[in-house]
Amino acid sequence: MTQAQPPRGSEPDRFRMGPTRISTLVVAALAAAAVAWLLISTFYYDVAPDLPWLPVVTLGALAVLEAYAAANTRSRIERRPGRYPVNPLLVARFVVLAKASSLAGAIFTGCYAGLTGWLFIEDTNAAMNDRPAAGAGLLAALALTVAALWLERACRVPAQEDDEDREPGERQGPQPRR
């Protein structure tokens, strides 16, 4: 006799958000690198103007802002002296921002990696002129990914001292009356 399965969607952890998986970011970066390599090798000489620096500056600025938010949020969660307690809703928003930014950063890292790789095997003047912007874009996108992962990790609630004494199946708070 087989056991009846619970109805689909009734599992309590089904919609729970977990930490970002590095494997997801690697797959996204590799897929973006392949697409970028394919597109750049097909259309570079037909339609590509000089690479702009604005995306590089934008990615770098986002990386700096998220790194600052990570350091500030971590110290506020740990309630270090001189810091105000953090608003839980702000932390939730930071987690969503961090998850989105880490995926976007991985995709941009892949795009800039494919572009940079292709530009370094080309020996034309146009490719040589685009190399600095492509390399800087790769570094800025990688910095954004790392800063976003740091922000996500900074938003974790630290383990409480009494959590270590508790058994794994034991509930927190008052026990229900029977």
Rank of each mutant, 00 (worst) to 15 (best):
R93W: 07
W53C: 04
L149Q: 14
L149S: 04
V57Y: 13
E122S: 11
A33R: 06
A147L: 09
P132E: 03
L39I: 01
G117F: 02
I121D: 01
V26S: 11
R16L: 03
L54Q: 06
A104I: 15
A140V: 00
V27I: 15
R16D: 10
L38A: 13
A71K: 03
T24V: 00
D50H: 09
D123A: 08
A134S: 13
G117V: 02
V146I: 15
R93S: 13
R153N: 15
T58E: 12
L89V: 08
R79V: 07
T116A: 15
L138V: 00
W118H: 13
Q172V: 10
L54N: 02
W150S: 10
Y84I: 06
P12E: 01
F120V: 08
I107E: 07
P55N: 00
P174S: 15
R76F: 13
V57A: 14
F15S: 03
G114E: 07
C111W: 09
P49A: 01
L90W: 14
L25N: 11
Y44P: 10
E78T: 11
G60C: 00
R14S: 07
A106G: 04
S75C: 03
T2A: 00
W150E: 00
F94L: 09
A126R: 10
P7V: 04
Y44W: 00
N129S: 03
S75I: 05
G117L: 02
P88D: 14
T58N: 12
P6C: 01
M128F: 01
L97C: 03
L54A: 07
G117Q: 09
L138I: 08
T20L: 01
L59T: 11
R178F: 05
A92P: 08
L142M: 11
I40G: 03
Q172N: 05
R93L: 02
D50G: 14
A92F: 05
P6V: 01
E170H: 07
E78N: 13
S102T: 15
Q172R: 14
A143G: 06
L62S: 14
L97H: 09
